[in-house]
Structures are given as C-alpha cells and as structure tokens.
Amino acid sequence: MFASMRSRVRAWITIGAGTVAAILAANLLGAFGALPEPEIPVFAAGQEIETGQWRVTPLRAFVTDQRIYDAPIREGQKALVLEVEMTNRTAASTTDYFTLFKHGLPVGEESETPFVMLTRDPSMTPELHPAMKERVAFVWALPESATSPGEIPFSVNTKTYKPIDNLYGVPGWYNEQELGRLVIPVSEASG
C-alpha cells in the first residue's frame, strides 16, 4: 500500500518537474515573445490621474532659468517645473511623492530627485494632508546646456498598499511600478 503510494508520488513529481522544465525552455527560446505587451496608458495635461496614494491633475510644465518658487536651483542650472494639483488619498499626512513623476530626459543623476515646492507659499517638501487639495510644483535641476524638446514624457508611478508588510507587520505603500505616461507640452519661459 505504501509502496504504491510512494510510486504514485514519484510519478507526480516527475510529471510536474517535466512541465516546469518544458515551460522554462520554451520561455528561453522566446516562445512568449509574440504575446502582446500590455499597453501603457498615456495621460494629458488637465486629466485627473489616480495613483493609489494620490489623486493628481497635471496643469503645466515649463523650463526656466529664473528662480522659481524659491527652489534651491544653483547658478548655471535650469529648472524644469511640473505644476500639479494633488490630493492625498490616504489617511495620514505624508511627503511620499518624490518618485511620483520621473522625467525622461537623458541628464545626470543629480537631477533625478525633484524639489517639491508648495505654490501657495514656497515651503519645500510640504506635508500633504488627507483629503486636502494642494497645488504643488515639482522642480528638477537641469544643466544649463539642456535643451527643451517641446514635449517631455514623464512616467507616472504608483505604489501598492500592503496592510501587513513582511518585515514589521505594519501597513504601508510598496512595490513602485509605472502606471502610465504623461505627455505634456513644455514651454521655454519664465513662469
């Protein structure tokens, strides 16, 4: 009885391992390359985007060499400014918005993290409170030589809510991934 049980288990394991190996080999040989890639949504200015933690409406974007919203842009740098209206959808005040937008310009690492300024009065890194809409400017420092291509693609990112994380068992927002693209005209002007 146990002998027949053991041989049956062994047969199951062999069949399972064979299937996994076959799928892996097919994957390596590119059998799934023909599957259509999921389409990334494209957002436009003025469109409300819901990204998990935020409800955000991009308003305008521009490049300027003037001091803008008191953002600490050094001399010899330009500022790429993306103005948005955003509302915190979570239950607590937060500043977790630095990776919400990423611009697709091929410039150095120093300009990857934006300064985030409140436009109401220029406070840097303002905490945004639940259910209170605020107008906020994301300001990236660009080298002076950077030229404005007229349109800059931004990727819009989102995070996933986990009620219990694996390390401390606390709720939080994790696993950032791209939600879509924002294509917005960028004017070369002082705001």
Binding site: A92, S93, E127, H129
Partner: peptide, 16 residues
C-alpha cells in the same frame, strides 16, 4: 502631535 478627525484621518502638525 496629530489632529485625528472623526473618521480617523490624521493631520500632522504643520511644518510650514
């Protein structure tokens, strides 16, 4: 300090 609204929304003291 946090101002907690009737539905549990938490408003931290302002840093402005």
């Amino acid at each position: 300090a946090t101002w907690q609204g009737p539905t549990g929304l938490g408003y931290r003291e302002t840093e402005r």
